[in-house]
Design a binder for these strands. Sequence first.
DNA 1: CGACCATTTGAGAATGATCAACTGTTGTGG
DNA 2: CCACAACAGTTGATCATTCTCAAATGGTCG
Lengths: 226, 226
Amino acid sequence: MKTLRLTSSDRAILLNARFFSRLPRTAIEAIVEGATVSTHETHDTLFRQDDPLDDVLVVLSGLVRLYRLGKDGREADVAVFPRGELIGVNAIFLDRRATANAQAAEPSIIARLEGAKLRRLAAEDTAVAQALLELLCHHGKLAEDCLAEDRLLTAPQRVANYILSHCPNGSESFSFRLPFQKSVLAGKLGLAPEALSRAFSTLRQSGVVVKGRVIEIRDRQALEQF
Amino acid sequence: MKTLRLTSSDRAILLNARFFSRLPRTAIEAIVEGATVSTHETHDTLFRQDDPLDDVLVVLSGLVRLYRLGKDGREADVAVFPRGELIGVNAIFLDRRATANAQAAEPSIIARLEGAKLRRLAAEDTAVAQALLELLCHHGKLAEDCLAEDRLLTAPQRVANYILSHCPNGSESFSFRLPFQKSVLAGKLGLAPEALSRAFSTLRQSGVVVKGRVIEIRDRQALEQF
DNA sequence: CGACCATTTGAGAATGATCAACTGTTGTGG
DNA sequence: CCACAACAGTTGATCATTCTCAAATGGTCG
């Protein structure tokens, strides 16, 4: 389902997105002008690998999973985008084709910005180019983190890492709520859902208690050296 | 060992690098002005994880391996940079710290560009910003490829993939020379050297013959469906 | 209750890492 | 020119980790 214009609440969400927060109001207006919005159910496909794609998607609410398909049909998540993230920036500066499939991992509202316009603005307005550079560098670092984690850590270590990354700095015990289904977390960490489940079991002996989506950490120390 | 200025042959190499080839001469001059050059032996460390780093390195010749260290001292390669590549662009637009260790994987000549200058030029000259955007998008795509490969493919499949990526489009049988040691390739593919060796053994039955650094492919078809 | 979905648990198989021994190559110095 | 050291790569055996498939559990919503 598609609505042609952004509502004012859509705009408010956009302004909070990290990418837009550094930009002057006028640049934001220029980028957002002409954007369209669509709503999607869980499992809806937003675009497919190799599709022509000259848009940047912004997650206004919900969650989008970016994944590639193996020859055997298996899926490997490449990134997971929560509210406020931009999807597909790479594509608009390369060959304007999707390098992966994008799928709503929960009911989601998505804005579409025109790639052509973004390219033009990046070429005219150095503030826009600057914001894009920072965004891409940040994504690059995340990808590097992810690759290194995959190659260096076992499943329980990756999960421990993820939990610690949500720990307010310096607290000894705390708890938080997973922002998505466990199966999504499993994909994000490059694990089968079963492996995630077993990793949580393993971590129980280090003071991690899982009830539904709520994770409780009793002993941060134990977790850190896992 | 460090020389203060680029020689003219250094310059020639720089001009051939993909990043510089799209830039006008004046922009290149501005970027390169004040660059320093250093030579390094195999295994020399160029910078370390978490070091302050406000330079961009350019590989004039040789090969640089970027890797992270696990708590147990194991190394995981996150990228390998051949001649002409830029290293550390992410860092200069983020917190100006290295996110990984960089090490010469063979005798190498490295130019250092000042991050501050590059930032300034990116803010003043949209052509520079544009070139950086394209570079970062390209790196982003490579990282995505790498992550997906790690998660979807077995060792022999990754090796087959690597070989095919060096196959001139459309040829049925061909051969090429590895641009670096097998141990470097193993690292790049996220494998232990032994695993790479075994993968080559496995691929022999699909018409891959390895002699030293020379790889010969007899049957492209067989390789593609591996 | 019952259908549906997410998650957990179990058992087995597959994959790749590790350690150790062996082969082969290269380069150096006597 | 050979002997030898140093290094790169291979091979074998074993082990740890994770995937896969199957079945059980649990939760949610009509």
